[in-house]
Amino acid sequence: MTNKINDPLSQKGTGSIAERVDEAIKPHSIRLFASKIDVSEGTLRRILKGEDPKLSVTVKIAEESGVLLNWLVTGEGPKHPGEDHKQVSLEPVVVRCDEFTEEFALIPGYHISASTGHGELNRGEQVKRHLAFRKKWLNFRGLSPDKLAVVFAHGDSMEPTIHSNNSLLVNTADTKLTDGSIFVLRFGDELYAKRLQKRFDGDIRLISDNKEYEDQIVKADEISQLNIIGKVIWIGKDLY
């Protein structure tokens, strides 16, 4: 029987190790991330269900996902290298507009949805809202704010990774197909958020995380109809 160590941080509002691992490995699938850190899918699933990981596995998860080991283990301190960590205060803070824009980038959220929606992401679309992202985090990830956009998920084909109405941060500068990553793409008249896998025969597989949906195959002679808009690099979701 595996010994479990109580995670006292779960009582302090910082969540459990399992919750932080779940947050760290996204948007990768459990199977893909397990292969990246050279552990079995079953091992990673047990960790996500509450089994305490070995230190060597914890280090691999932190290194592969780019988070700090201290944050992953304790939930305290900054999540990513270069981030400042401040204690949460319930007191209202007044921030001047120039101070806000110096620290945050406002990324446009377009009034289109991915998975079952129609249309193509472009700057002519209606901006529904803006989401603020810390510039330090964007710089750490090597992201350019003017190449980012937010679209909205629709449907359940990518559950449990993506739920309907989740916000998807898309890097339109990254359109190179990498196996297992989630991309927003247009095929024909449809806009999708799917994992992509290139096959040896030149076809491309569109993979749904929800296994109630069959994978779709884009034949090599149909690839000209496939437009990869950008890679999904962050998912924003409501907890209830």
Rank of each mutant, 00 (worst) to 15 (best):
G77R: 11
R31P: 03
L55W: 13
V88Q: 07
D221T: 05
V93G: 07
F33M: 02
R45I: 08
P8T: 09
D146E: 09
D201P: 03
P78Y: 06
E64Q: 09
E63N: 10
D22K: 13
E99L: 09
K4N: 13
I207S: 00
K128V: 15
E120G: 10
N139W: 15
V39M: 01
N6D: 09
I162W: 02
P27Q: 03
L68K: 14
N227F: 09
S144L: 14
S115I: 14
S164D: 07
G117P: 00
D156Y: 03
A149M: 07
V218Y: 00
V88S: 06
F104N: 04
I207D: 00
Q225K: 15
E76H: 14
K237V: 15
K198I: 11
F183I: 02
M158G: 02
S89P: 07
A114Q: 03
G77F: 12
L72E: 02
I229T: 11
D22C: 08
G142Y: 10
D238W: 12
I30A: 05
F100L: 11
L138A: 05
T175V: 15
V93S: 11
E63G: 02
H111M: 14
H111A: 14
I17E: 12
G82K: 08
V127H: 05
K211E: 14
L239G: 09
G42M: 13
S157Q: 01
Y192G: 02
L131K: 10
R123E: 14
V57P: 04
L131S: 12
F100M: 08
W71I: 08
D209Q: 03
L121S: 00
I37K: 01
R129E: 12
G117N: 00
A105L: 05
S144M: 14
P108Y: 06
K54Q: 13
L191I: 06
P8F: 10
R46W: 11
S40R: 07
E159D: 11
F140T: 12
L138E: 05
F183M: 04
N122W: 13
K136W: 06
L226K: 03
D52L: 15
K79G: 05
T172I: 13
S16D: 01
V184L: 03
S181M: 07
P81K: 13
K79Q: 11
S144T: 15
E91D: 12
S113Q: 10
G155Y: 00
V21A: 02
T58M: 15
V184T: 07
G119L: 13
I112K: 05
T58S: 14
L69S: 06
